[in-house]
Design a protein around this nucleic acid. Structure first.
Lengths: 145, 145
DNA sequence: ATATTATCGAGAATGAGTCTCAATTGCTAT
DNA sequence: ATAGCAATTGAGACTCATTCTCGATAATAT
């Protein structure tokens, strides 16, 4: 599989946009760690590496990364969006505990099939999906207020 | 099935909260129509019916309706949340066209089963889920930019 | 009735995300 | 190389959904 930087460059070229140092630094930082993150964290991490990229550029680049499919919006929490990079990872979905707010990832092949079938039924060309299951994790079961 | 107003009253009682005219008017308006809506629309509809309820109260009540399970957050679009009431409806998910932004609802029994199985596998007590499938609708297929 | 507590409304405050625009950078063609 | 041009950046102003504050009001308990 080709490195994400190449995917991104091709995406930008296809849109007639430039692969600037700022955009590439942001991409690199996004792929440098495997947790969910938000824009504020990303900016902090860039700063810690001596990269001083403006908030506006980070937001602008996030939109491009999402459009390119390298990154996905995962959920809104505390009033702002959280992301994860998905390129190079098997697709997964999220279980979300309403007690402790913990997020657990899971994979499930059956889901993909159901999704494809639903797409066919509606003559939709399916490009992706997002599933979140809510509930209470083993630790929080029974003690929900 | 008992009317939603009773469900809401019981929910409020259970939390030691009062069933005020404002809360009940908001509930009634939410269940008065079957489309997706946002808070701004809801306030407009209340005004048209002569109800003058403050923005703050509407937001406060929406949070209660979501917590009670009568209403669900559906998606964020144009920078704000959109809702639908779900009590009394078979659970459904959304197909979202990336071309024309249209949202199509669908139901699928297989999905519920998969969801339950995933819950069991993780010893989660599942209370709900949200699935969004992205893609291009029949009209927009092939003309994506 | 009076005290207590929840709720309301109006508007201020917050904060994520977007926009503006002058300055900068990177291509492209000479 | 260099000039010209368009894309991009950064700083900070701006927008706007949502939350917060707090004095006024209403419901419930004593």
């Amino acid at each position: 599989m080709k490195p994400e930087i190449d995917v991104f460059r091709e995406f930008l070229a296809h849109k007639g946009m430039r692969a600037t140092p700022e955009r590439e630094a942001i991409l690199a930082e996004v792929f440098a760690n495997h947790d969910h993150f938000d824009v504020e964290e990303l900016i902090m991490r860039l700063r810690q590496n001596g990269q001083r990229i403006s908030r506006a550029s980070v937001y602008r680049t996030m939109a491009l990364l999402v459009e390119s499919g390298l990154v996905q919006e995962v959920y809104v929490e505390d009033g702002h969006m959280h992301y994860e990079h998905v390129y190079g990872h098997e697709h997964h979905c999220h279980l979300r505990c309403l007690g402790c707010r913990k997020i657990i990832e899971f994979r499930n092949g059956a889901l993909e099939e159901v999704e494809q079938r639903i797409g066919r039924d509606h003559r939709f060309e399916v490009t992706g999906h997002k599933l979140e299951i809510y509930g209470y994790c083993p630790e929080c079961r029974g003690q929900k207020k």
